[in-house]
Nucleic acid binder design. Structure first.
Lengths: 343, 343
DNA sequence: TCCAATGATGTAAACCTTTACATGGGGAGT
DNA sequence: ACTCCCCATGTAAAGGTTTACATCATTGGA
């Protein structure tokens, strides 16, 4: 019975002995169709195994029911959970999700732009602060879009994430409370807005504690394990060391911890370390990492809800939705080592 | 000039003063169109910013130019690099790639099945040995499909991966060469074909070394960090311990190493550990992990090439393409500790 | 009994492409 | 000079769906 080509709405209509219009209505506006008819149609659908041809539907409607999620690196440990939130919310509104990753290659980014321009996605979720569309970034015509996790460097794209300043503040306040004053900030960045906000939280915390600007140690980084390790190497070539490392994210913290272990130091005995994000690995490390948790699933859900609003044609209430971060205290922080205690 | 709705082929045709058929040909069969005409069309395309509407094109052609890649967990450290290989190959043949992840939720899997059934993808790459379509798994009508990384538990789906038996054999041979005889295999599994093949390599190695079956220690697992840790706990409740742990993959090895560290043991001083996959983390661990490398990008490339063959209507030469794995020797293996050396 | 209104269904156009087939012009061969 | 062929282009149908509009039947009110 099941032929080679998939059943069309016409097959269903023939079997149900109604017109194709009625079949379409029975599916999409069931209240507009008589009960008995609806029944016949449903039976016919079951018999034929019909599913609506999404290409035809999207063509007719002028919009797709898919939402594209673009990330620079799918392997990012934060990505997976955000995705769950995004997907659940999307699915419950009849949208599907597709994932694209750019590997920071503008060429790949342009492919996705083409995908968007050919109307294959109704909306866009950006898991990157920097639009990945190469030289077309500024001129690109985008569908309704929302940034997650990192504010987007282009006007008009709303953003859902965590309150970075508050999160960083919580971390630095813990270190201060433990007695640290020489606290290094690892992973500052001019191009990544989320990172500079975390830096801001760091500064505010030290301001409040009365630590003069001259005593602060700032190192740049890009949030990778490598960059954490690199920053540590640079630091060890200077004369003054901090007693604690406040890292811009967990990956950086992992890099720092690897470097410290390699040099034979004990954490937190010799140095304290904090991260940001609370990636799954943070639990498994030795010592386990004290860090700021991102409510990832909630961020995803909230971002998708916002995007659906945009798709429905509503103006968003806020251009930025910030969720509250929690400090997760584990074992990588303690009071500073003796030599830091003078004064 | 740029109106609200995107330019169609008709806009281009009007500006270029040709028919829409010519425009279509100029784009897709440029050799069939006169140079001067092609020029006019290209100019018109530049002016209008036209991109072909993929939905209309796919509808007409009866097939999409997208390939769906389904993985249970996008965060899998092996996934990212395979994807690069898949994408490069696909792109160079005019196909795009979409990623779906199921989180091992059959409900999600069914969504992707629906996606496939509505013709939105021309082909399917499976990053999972177990088809993720819930109760419809066995009856599902799939487009041309290829498994990567793990053989697929359903007839007729070809598979591209590494030679698991050979890889495992290399690892176990190294341990034997270092003098180990009591070698535990962590992560055996009946349901995951790749894992039972690795187990087979382990057995063959021990057979060759003359280690009797009675002296082998086998523990089950599902390839997660947790399962490695759990297996270790079980092992410590027994009376006999191995001198080396051969783990079914790197994640499992990480779990084992975490457990050993937590108990205060030194690796490789007290116990040797090997993994499989060579995930990025393997380099960063202390000690760095001796493991079997999967040529991930090559696997991806080769799998996509195979899928493109299928899409072109050709029968695949082989139903299984196995690439050669390399043993990467790092610092987690040494000669067995003294107490294992008697005899 | 008739009219109007309501509700259920059908008809047909439109969405944007691709491509088989038709058309027309020009060059080569005789 | 005539035919034939080929090349470049145009015409129109088809692909599967949604929906405005038309149609028809039924019901309630007068």
């Amino acid at each position: 019975m099941s032929t080679s080509s998939p059943a069309t709405i016409e097959d269903v209509a023939r079997i149900a002995q109604v017109s194709i219009a009625t079949v379409s209505r029975a599916i999409h506006m069931p209240e507009k169709v008589a009960n008995s008819t609806r029944l016949k149609v449903n039976q016919a659908i079951a018999i034929t195994g019909y599913t609506t041809n999404a290409m035809a539907r999207s063509l007719r409607l002028g919009r797709s029911n898919m939402i594209l999620v673009v990330a620079p690196d799918i392997g990012d440990p934060n990505f997976s959970n955000i995705l769950i939130g995004l997907e659940n919310e999307a699915r419950s509104h009849g949208y599907g999700i597709l994932i694209g990753h750019t590997h920071n290659d503008p060429q790949r980014g342009l492919e996705y732009l083409k995908f968007l321009n050919s109307n294959q996605a109704a909306g866009l979720i950006l898991f990157t602060g920097i639009l990945p569309f190469g030289h077309q970034t500024m001129t690109a015509r985008l569908p309704p879009s929302v940034g997650v996790f990192e504010p987007v460097y282009k006007g008009g794209i709303p953003y859902v994430g965590v309150d970075d300043i508050e999160g960083a503040r919580k971390a630095v306040d813990l270190l201060i409370a433990e007695g640290h004053r020489k606290i290094a900030f690892i992973g500052d960045s001019r191009t990544r807005l989320a990172y500079s906000r975390r830096r801001q939280g760091y500064d505010e915390g030290l301001d409040a504690a009365g630590v003069p600007v001259g005593e602060r140690i700032i190192l740049e980084g890009d949030g990778t394990i490598e960059s954490g390790r690199l920053a540590l190497e640079q630091l060890f070539m200077r004369d003054t060391l901090p007693s604690a490392f406040m890292c811009v994210n967990d990956q950086t913290a992992i890099g720092v911890m690897i470097g410290l272990s390699a040099r034979g130091y004990d954490i937190p005995g010799d140095f304290s370390v904090t991260g940001f994000d609370d990636v799954p690995q943070a639990t498994f490390m030795t010592p386990s990492l004290t860090t700021v948790r991102q409510p990832r699933t909630a961020i995803g859900k909230s971002a998708m809800a916002l995007l659906l609003e945009l798709l429905a044609g509503n103006e968003p209430a806020d251009t930025e939705i910030l969720l509250r971060p929690d400090l997760i205290v584990r074992n990588s922080v303690s009071a500073p080592a003796r030599q830091f205690l003078r004064r």
